[in-house]
Design a protein around this nucleic acid. Structure first.
Length: 493
RNA sequence: GGCGGCAUAGCCAAGUGGCUAAGGCAGCGGUCUGCAAAACCGUUAUUCCCCGGUUCAAGUCCGGGUGCCGCCUCCA
């Protein structure tokens, strides 16, 4: 089955045809380095991480470029406010970004270029546009002339006349057309600057992506991605200037992820509902956030709330419980050499064939415009199937059981590799989950374990009333006990 | 005002023309258990916002309505 991608440029799902057989060039707009990453950045990062992971799993040699916009008004503003250089601000937030991404299990892109390190490319590109008559310089500023380029508005599906009619009164009368945008901005007193043919200045917002994508991926590449808010004006401007300069399309497919809402409201500074990644992962295992994001289709809006993360946590616990049982079952198996009887061989083959069917379905879901929600449905089917196996095949010879479980493990490894989950050791997952929940709820571990010990004593004396009283008491604190042959374990509900 | 999107069970969420409308969370009944938990089995939408149309056949396509949301200004 072939890969399908919903292309923003055509608003249709299309069959993906790479420029070069077996290879994919993808450029995703990264962050502007003036603040820490929030849950919205996390979504975009996770979405494109999974896109790349899946394409790689399908055998494509993917070159993934994600930039840092490290020169911008907001960075300058912040630097001035703190009385430090823009480099210091950028370095700080790039570092924070990298930490967050690592915590979220987001793989580092192939190339992570910075605007400030590509000034020559940027200036060359603007010069080319000026030479070809697509750009004009006024007082040290350089603007892109949208009228000289016939296809402006194509990507975002906007109509030029209507946009001009609806445009705000533009105070900048230097522009020939109010929709013209800056390629190069003359630097004001005290602002950082670079020397250029137009004097001291710095690049406009969009040009750095055009320059850097071209540098690493060529004039035309396969996929360009970003958050849906970037469609206009950023990507519209980017594609206009790139295409004007090279005479070739910038990207063949445009992918845009939907927004994260917070408790059904738009996330914004004025509402004060911005959730930094660092805050979230204090309270939840990073894979909880990933699972939450991946349970919705990447183009749909997603509604972030405490309860939605709590639900995602329950789902992840379900998966890790099975992973843990699998591991324990495998560890207990003896290396007997009992030959598989006909029945158990058949059963084994039966299960393995079902496993493989789920893998096919999972891959097919991912092929269909990266439908992670559907793919996760198959992951949970695999969880149930594995549990079934463990419950139903108690009498299978260990050797055959082990073979089957090893196959199941491979399947989970595949799912985990593509979605970027199941990367913790199962035991470790529950340890860290417990610690997180204890901290979050301010519970005292010592006290809990002491009560459990008291209950153990009561149980050994068959004092069920006392044992149950303690269970109840702990239950009030959402502590769930599990008695087993080798003691009592507990977790937080 | 312009452009675009969404509406599926108590909640979250796939499915875009045709077998029984995925999956998760929550709930209920059962198996297991000293009691529980986990796991398993069963169960929870005769129906997909409303009205009309196309079709042998529609949640899925078309028209209209209602409601919600995003973009058009910095934004993942």
């Amino acid at each position: 089955m072939s890969q399908k991608i919903f292309n923003t440029a055509t608003r249709k799902k299309e069959v993906f045809q790479p420029i070069k057989e077996g290879a994919v060039g993808i450029y995703v707009c990264g962050i502007t380095t003036y603040d820490v990453c929030h849950v919205g950045h996390a979504r975009a990062a996770i979405v494109f991480d999974v896109v790349v992971r899946h394409l790689r799993a399908r055998g494509y040699n993917v070159t993934y470029v994600k930039n840092f916009t490290d020169v911008d008004d907001k960075i300058i503003e912040r630097a001035n406010k703190e009385g430090v250089s823009i480099t210091e601000i950028s370095e700080r937030y790039i570092k924070a970004h990298d930490e967050d991404m690592a915590a979220l299990g987001v793989q580092t892109p192939t190339v992570t270029p910075r605007a400030t390190e590509h000034m020559e490319d940027i200036i060359a590109l603007i010069s080319a546009l000026e030479k070809q008559g697509y750009a004009y310089c006024v007082d040290g500023d350089v603007y892109f002339s949208i009228n000289s380029y016939g296809k402006y508005g194509n990507l975002s599906g906007r109509n030029l006349e209507e946009m001009i009619a609806g445009a705000r009164v533009d105070v900048n009368d230097k522009k020939k057309n109010p929709l013209d945008f800056a390629l190069w901005k003359k630097s004001k007193e005290g602002e950082p600057y670079w020397e250029s043919p137009w004097g001291k200045g710095r690049p406009g917002w969009h040009i750095e992506c055009s320059a850097m994508s071209r540098r690493y991926l060529g004039d035309t590449f396969d996929i360009h991605g970003g958050g849906e808010d970037l469609i206009f004006p950023h990507h519209e401007n980017e594609t206009a200037q790139s295409q004007a300069a090279t005479g070739k399309p910038l990207a063949n497919y445009w992918i845009h992820n939907g927004f994260v809402k917070i408790d059904s409201e738009k996330m914004s500074k004025s509402l004060g509902n911005i959730f930094p990644v660092k805050e979230i992962i204090k309270n939840y295992h990073p894979e909880v956030l990933r699972l939450f994001m991946l349970q919705s289709h990447y183009r749909s809006p997603v509604d972030y709330s405490e309860s939605s993360l709590t639900e995602a946590r329950a789902g992840l616990i379900r998966c890790y419980t099975t992973l843990k049982i699998m591991k324990e079952t495998l560890d207990k198996l003896s290396v007997d050499t009992v030959k598989a009887d006909k029945k158990s061989s058949e059963n084994r083959n039966n299960y393995i064939s079902k496993f493989n069917k789920l893998v096919d379905k999972f891959d097919a879901a991912m092929d269909d415009d990266f439908n992670t929600a559907q793919a996760l449905g198959h992951v949970f089917d695999m969880v149930r199937l594995t549990n079934n196996f463990i419950v139903d095949e108690k009498h299978m010879p260990d050797y055959v059981k082990a073979e089957t479980l090893e196959e199941a493990k491979k399947v989970f490894d595949h799912f985990g590799t593509v979605l970027g989950i199941f990367h913790s050791d199962a035991d470790q997952f529950f340890v860290s989950d417990k610690e997180t929940e204890l901290r979050k709820r301010g519970l005292d571990k010592e006290k809990i374990e002491d009560l459990i010990k008291q209950r153990q004593v009561a149980r050994s004396q068959k004092d069920w009333a006392k044992a149950d009283a303690i269970r109840q008491e702990l239950g009030q604190l959402h502590i769930v006990l599990k008695d087993s042959a080798n003691g009592t374990s507990w977790m937080i509900d």
